[in-house]
């Protein structure tokens, strides 16, 4: 076994750090969009609008039932062939779109479960004071469901950050893509991928700390 080229690894760190904004940017954009879409899908699954409900179920089933990589290829390489206006789509947009739809499908199910878990008395109290369905959801039910769903949703965010690495297959030079290029130049594959693995790991660990703060905040109302 050969010794690790530590100097090479240390030298690689600042190079890869430069790609963190793109990696986190894609993950954050997709997370925000997936949260919005996932909440809408979840609310629909609870309220069950005729016809729309079938479409939503189909959507969730497809995006949970097929690999993310297949979905990304479908968007980036496949769709522009049938929808000509998509020919201009760049890898970053396609990746964010794919991550959004994929994770929205998963989040919808977690959020739906959390919504259903909100105590019946909360729904009745909101109805009794004359709130509309939308007011009730937005002001009373979703905030309480968020507390229950938060740990799971943060898990999805972690998964999403790691999944941005798939964007390199769409030609996006993000952290993984950059590592690939560096490694191809130096032939030090083990060192290069070890560095990028550790960087992902550190980002996720930092996020876990944020998760703790978030949970404390969301639990504020429920502390005795």
């Amino acid at each position: 076994m050969q010794a690790l080229d530590i100097d090479y690894m240390l030298g690689l760190v600042p190079v890869l750090l430069g790609y963190i904004p793109l990696t986190l940017g894609m993950a954050t954009a997709a997370m925000v969009l997936a949260l919005i879409l996932g909440s809408l899908l979840a609310v629909e699954r609870v309220v069950k609008v005729p016809v729309l409900d079938t479409l939503v179920m189909l959507f969730i089933s497809f995006f949970r039932g097929t690999p993310l990589l297949v979905q990304l290829f479908l968007f980036y390489y496949g769709l522009p062939q049938v929808l000509s206006f998509l020919t201009q789509i760049n890898g970053v947009t396609a990746a964010v779109m794919g991550l959004t739809l994929h994770f929205a499908a998963y989040m919808a199910e977690s959020i739906r479960a959390a919504i259903i878990g909100v105590d019946r008395s909360q729904w009745e109290a909101a109805q009794s004071v004359g709130m509309t369905q939308t007011q009730m959801m937005r002001r009373i039910i979703l905030p309480q469901a968020a507390r229950v769903a938060a740990p799971t949703l943060v898990n999805y965010f972690i998964d999403m950050i790691k999944s941005t690495s798939l964007a390199f297959t769409l030609g996006v030079t993000e952290m993984m893509g950059a590592t690939q290029k560096e490694a191809a130049g130096s032939f030090l594959y083990f060192e290069a991928f070890l560095v990028v693995a550790i960087l992902y790991w550190i980002i996720v660990e930092a996020l876990s700390q944020v998760q703790k703060l978030l949970e404390t905040r969301l639990n504020k109302a429920f502390a005795r």
Binding site: S121, E124, S128
Partner: peptide
């Protein structure tokens, strides 16, 4: 206006 047996205050 409704007053509930189990109070049903908005927990959040």
């Amino acid at each position: 206006a409704f007053v509930f047996q189990n109070y049903a205050l908005f927990a959040n």
